[in-house]
Write a protein that binds this DNA or RNA. Structure first.
Length: 279
DNA sequence: CGCATATCCTGACTGC
DNA sequence: TGCAGTCAGGATATGC
């Protein structure tokens, strides 16, 4: 459930605590987190290196190393990246799959109950610092903007529904189920509209809404849902869930028009919308 | 090719 | 109180 705003919040935290720090120890405890390469290979490529930058593309964290390789981390559904500093060193929580000891005595821990999260080191990085493994990702709305013309080109003639297009990482990188619903609400568009049915004005509204929702969600440090699973590097919760207009609000009143928010299925996933003001 | 569906997984929740 | 069943969803593989 971490999407662009949550990952950006973690990235900003990492910028302050890992850049310039040397990796002195790596322990891979789980079996599934490191799966594109042998865990021993990942460890070898990290130990002794120094982090030079903390970047992000879509929902992927990109931690650059001083040998020009990049450590790629994806939180997927339930991953938490926590930074432990000072003398506090709590016991290892259940589902802790990777631990990274830094030269200043602090430590990163990756906790991920559902084990969908992933870590890998890539040495095949383009001039923008993007690993070849992530070359399929589309535009990142905050890093590169989201021009209306770009969306028009990708939506034209498509029968896929709006929510499916917004969450297609090959088109727009970083939007998941929560923010797709919130963006559609802001744009007053039903998430089950086909992409090709939108006129130019509606696409423009969607692009504008996407930028606004994501920017505001970053300012609120992301959304922590009922399970309180999403936390930042320090273990603190986000607050954008308090501003959700539709996500997980089925049966509650729309703040814009007073109708009841409903939930419907798009593909195998839920979508929340207000049928009173989303057309 | 375009689109829909199944899969991975654990914890929270629901109903009996 | 316990327990079986359902749901949640990001990315990717597979099916039609």
């Amino acid at each position: 459930m971490p999407e662009l705003p949550e990952v950006e919040t973690v990235r900003r935290g990492l910028e302050g605590v890992v850049v310039g720090r040397r990796i002195v120890e790596v322990k891979v405890l789980g079996r599934r987190t490191v799966r594109r390469q042998a865990p021993a290979d990942l460890t070898t490529r990290l130990v002794g290196r120094t982090f030079t930058a903390a970047g992000r593309r879509g929902k992927f964290l990109l931690l650059s190393l001083d040998d020009d390789a990049v450590l790629v981390v994806h939180l997927r559904m339930s991953g938490q990246l926590l930074h432990l500093s000072g003398t506090q060193r709590p016991p290892i929580a259940a589902h802790t799959h990777v631990m990274v000891g830094l030269g200043d005595g602090t430590e990163l821990r990756f906790v991920d109950p559902r084990t969908f999260g992933e870590w890998f080191v890539s040495s095949d990085v383009d001039s923008r610092g993007v690993p070849s493994e992530l070359a399929h990702l589309g535009r990142d709305p905050l890093l590169e903007g989201l021009p209306t013309a770009y969306l028009v080109a990708h939506f034209a003639g498509r029968r896929v529904r709006l929510k499916g297009l917004l969450t297609d990482q090959r088109i727009v990188a970083g939007i998941g189920s929560i923010y797709a619903d919130e963006i559609c609400f802001r744009a007053k568009l039903r998430p089950d509209r086909s992409g090709g049915s939108l006129n130019a004005g509606e696409v423009a509204s969607l692009a504008k809404s996407a930028r606004a929702v994501l920017r505001e969600a970053v300012a609120s440090r992301g959304s922590s849902l009922r399970d309180l699973r999403y936390r930042d590097l320090a273990g603190d919760l986000g607050s954008y869930q308090e501003r959700h207009a539709v996500y997980d609000r089925a049966g509650e009143l729309c703040r814009r028009c007073g109708s009841r928010v409903v939930r419907l299925k798009i593909g195998a996933r839920s979508a929340y919308l207000c049928e009173g003001c989303q057309l």
